[in-house]
Amino acid sequence: MSSVVLVLITGLGVGALYFLVASGLSLIYGLMNVLNFAHGAFIALGALIGWEVAEHTDAASWWSFLLSLVVGAVVGAAFAAFTELVLIRPLYQRHIEQVLVTVGLSFAAIALFDGIWGQDLHSVKGPAWLDEVTVVAGAHIANIFWVLIVAAVLVLGGLSLFLRKTRYGKIIRAGVENRAMVTALGIDVRRAFTLVFSIGGAAAGLGGVLAMHYMTGVTPEIGSSLLIFAFIVIIIGGTESLVGTAVASVIVAVLQQFANTYLWGTGDFIAIVLLPIVLLLRPSGLFGKRA
């Protein structure tokens, strides 16, 4: 029993991490049809700058932890906004080229990060509470998982409120639904593009810093490994709703954890094989509209 609880809650925690990374990707893909391969670079930059913050302040204190989260999110947002304005916007409506540019950016940026920070693992030691465990129904859960879950719930709640209640949120939702119509109504969708990229970058940066604490260290490759799972999540969840992305994140991560524990560590295989299966059976994702 306790091991099932452990797998469930760690699955939820890892799913929360996937959601943080995938939420931005899903919004970008839904609105602009750009599958953003540079998202891994956003994650890596957020994590690496977050590491610098932890390194230059008292890493074991909570305010340093919070500061690194905020700085990571801001850096991710700035990098993403830059990407949208300089690389994506000039290639408006040319989807394959947009994808290629993000591939090139990720290729170049990760090499640059390698040059600056090196390929070795930079370890980090956050607040001591993160390493301790809480006992739930006999299962020992590392506290970092609670932080991941809370962060993901806050991001999901915040983004949902933003998308439902604010003018820009409504423009973004309308744009995902039918971009041509929004443009026809005289609304400049391009500003929404930059905004969506910034939000996605912020979530990626935040996810990067949290992933660093989860893995207790960071290399410039941190984003590439997460990105594959983020792709899986958004394809499975469909791109119409954030809740779909959240549910898909949890499903993928919990399945992965269960398989890792009970099926001889085949979790990664199962998660990856889910992608072609879902794409073939339901091309628009589990929660997407039927095409």
């Binding site: 690389l87 290629l100 540019v101 090139g104 950016l105 290729f107 170049a108 940026a109 990760i110 090499a111 640059l112 390698d114 040059g115």
Partner: peptide
Amino acid sequence: SQPHFLLGIVFI
């Protein structure tokens, strides 16, 4: 000193 950085920029 990062060939892949330069090649990535050329690609873009």
